[in-house]
């Protein structure tokens, strides 16, 4: 037995994973046991987790704070619209294609917005989203400002099959992108990302290619958001520029991640649950609901910067998705010490 071992998973984690797998099996079978409105709620939960994971990947791990990520939701939605209505491609097949299209758009967008540093990058991405929104307003062929309905592309598919397939894709995206983020973080790219987020000069000196790392994260996030965007508009059945490129998508992503716990894989899931709870509680309050949600996010940022999951993980030292490599020191008394690396914004 060596003195130092990289510790990966605890027994408790295994338990949680088994429970999660069981829950997933139950959810996969939901089209046979749940009614339409439950199915839609679970699908919404899943795609909100998916888009929150993509923002978390970008900001929480990549250090790229964007308030314009709705651009890729919109690109995904419009890819679905154009390919299914005008090219006659199966709407379900459009979803992976929308991810690829979105990723392709991300490259030239990055070429522009990466010229802006820090907080100005955040607003630059917003301008780009606004460009897409306004430009599509002026294209009558795909509905102009009022948008277009997708129903004609879906008419040939039987109702149950359409609902169930849409649901499975949403579930797949929620679970798949969560696992995807986790795998990226465990990879070499993940290490490089964390290094870049914590210190650009230090990671450069260690041979991390900063520009390439940031671009890869940005494109990966666009890929996921493009797929999610297509899926979202498959459930909404109507795509319009104001809705598809709406800031509201990014508001959701940010609030979910901040409240749940930025920079943790678990955070977006916890945040989505909190969001569903608050929305149900505050459904009758109209605009006050967003005032309260915004206030919660501000208070979290001021008082508990690591969010709910960050607090749980810190308090109980428990991770479902251990993305940090923890060093275990084996000694005769089998006690172990940990060296938790602490990102800058968590320790201050």
């Amino acid at each position: 037995m060596s003195l130092l071992e990289l510790e990966n998973a605890s027994r408790l984690q295994h338990g949680v994973w088994i429970a999660a797998a069981a829950l997933l099996a139950v959810l996969i079978l939901a089209p046979w046991w749940a009614d339409d409105s439950d199915l839609r709620s679970i699908a919404e939960f899943a795609y909100l987790v998916a888009i929150a994971q993509m923002w978390n990947l970008l900001a929480g791990y990549g250090g790229l704070i964007s308030v314009g990520q709705q651009v890729f939701i919109g690109i995904g939605g419009y890819t679905l619209l154009i390919l299914s209505l005008d090219a006659g491609i199966s709407p379900f097949l459009c979803i992976p294609v929308a991810g690829v299209v979105s990723a392709l758009f991300a490259v030239p967008i990055a070429a522009v917005v990466f010229r802006l540093q820090g907080p100005y990058f955040a607003i630059g991405t917003w301008v780009v989203a606004d460009v897409f929104r306004l430009a599509l307003d002026n294209v009558p062929a795909i509905g102009g400002g009022s948008g277009k309905s997708l129903t004609s592309a879906l008419m040939s598919i039987p109702g149950w099959q359409r609902e169930a397939t849409t649901y499975w894709i949403a579930l797949g995206l929620g679970v798949g992108l969560t696992i995807g983020v986790y795998l990226i973080l465990r990879s070499r790219l993940g290490l490089a990302m964390t290094a870049v987020r914590d210190s650009v000069p230090a990671s450069e000196s260690l041979g991390v290619r900063v520009g390439r790392t940031k671009l890869l994260i940005y494109v990966a996030s666009a890929l996921g958001l493009g797929m999610a965007g297509a899926l979202i508009y498959l459930t909404k059945l109507r795509v319009s520029p104001d809705a598809a490129f709406s800031m509201d998508w990014t508001v959701l992503m940010i609030f979910i991640v901040v409240i749940g716990g930025i920079g943790t894989v678990e955070g977006p899931i916890v945040g989505t649950a909190v969001f569903f709870f608050l929305r149900a509680m505050l459904a009758d309050f109209g605009p006050w609901y967003l005032v309260i949600l915004g206030s919660v996010a501000v208070v979290v940022m001021l008082k508990a910067r690591r969010g709910i999951w960050g607090w749980v993980a810190g308090r109980f030292n428990f991770h479902v998705f251990p993305t940090r490599r923890r060093i275990r020191v084996n000694s005769l008394r089998s006690g172990f010490a940990e060296m938790p690396p602490s990102p800058r914004y968590l320790t201050e």
């Binding site: 907080p119 996010a297 914004y345 201050e348």
Partner: peptide, 11 residues
């Protein structure tokens, strides 16, 4: 860290 002020003003 630029994240907290951005997120607070965003909220």
């Amino acid at each position: 860290d630029i994240l907290p002020p951005l997120l607070v003003t965003f909220g």
